[in-house]
């Protein structure tokens, strides 16, 4: 564990609670993509199957359970509890392409053909593009509420901080995993446009509007 990874994990936790807090306090999931949240639930389910096979640390186990339960909780709030406020008309990013591409990519580039390992690999690729339905939705509606912007910033920062963690681990621990680094770069690049708007607009008190 190093400071970048801890900061990344904490940023991820902040993102999750910001989103839950926004939905719960406004009693609305307006502007939130169920497709993205569903992908995150799928990502954590596929990735953390090793909860049953490998123990790493209490921290690791607690975080995994937190990510899985909160992602399903978020989906429940959008799909059931506050369904009336869900913008299903604009949440229509086609999911078959990223899903298909991630499965094919995992079959070509993986560490081993162990089933759990293959599902882990799919989850790594899938996480890198899971935010696309959300970004697509903002692009279509042309704006995002400020809490949604903070959520997205924290979520993007999480993988960006992990990139620093991988640089650190490469030099300090001689640890390098090409799959996560490749996916992490793609994931972070997808947020770049949003980061720019967030820094130039939201942090100056303006609403996030698409140019």
């Amino acid at each position: 564990m190093n400071i970048f990874r801890l900061a990344g994990d904490l940023s991820h936790v902040v993102a999750i609670f910001l989103l839950l807090w926004k939905i719960w306090t406004t009693r609305s999931c307006k502007g939130i993509s169920l497709r993205s949240q569903g992908l995150f639930a799928l990502v954590f389910t596929l990735r953390y199957l090793d909860l049953f096979t490998t123990y790493i640390s209490l921290y690791n186990t607690v975080m995994k359970i937190l990510f899985i339960t909160s992602s399903y909780g978020t989906c429940y709030l959008i799909f059931k509890k506050f369904r009336a406020t869900y913008d299903h008309n604009v949440d229509n990013f086609p999911l078959q392409y990223p899903l298909g591409a991630c499965v094919i990519l995992a079959l070509i580039f993986n560490h081993s053909w162990d089933p759990v390992e293959l599902l882990w690999t799919v989850s790594i690729y899938l996480e890198s593009v899971a935010i696309m339905p959300q970004l697509w939705m903002i692009q279509k509606t042309g704006e995002a509420e400020s809490v949604t912007s903070h959520y997205l910033f924290a979520l993007g920062a999480y993988r960006a901080l992990y990139l620093l963690n991988w640089v650190y681990r490469y030099f300090e621990e001689d640890h390098f995993d090409a799959i996560v680094v490749f996916a992490g770069i793609i994931q972070t690049v997808l947020y770049c446009d949003f980061f720019y708007l967030y820094i130039t607009k939201v942090l100056r008190g303006q609403r996030l509007k698409m140019p």
Partner: peptide, 10 residues
């Protein structure tokens, strides 16, 4: 080499 005996990151 890759450490596939458990991924320690989240």
């Amino acid at each position: 080499e890759d450490d596939i005996e458990g991924h320690d990151e989240l």
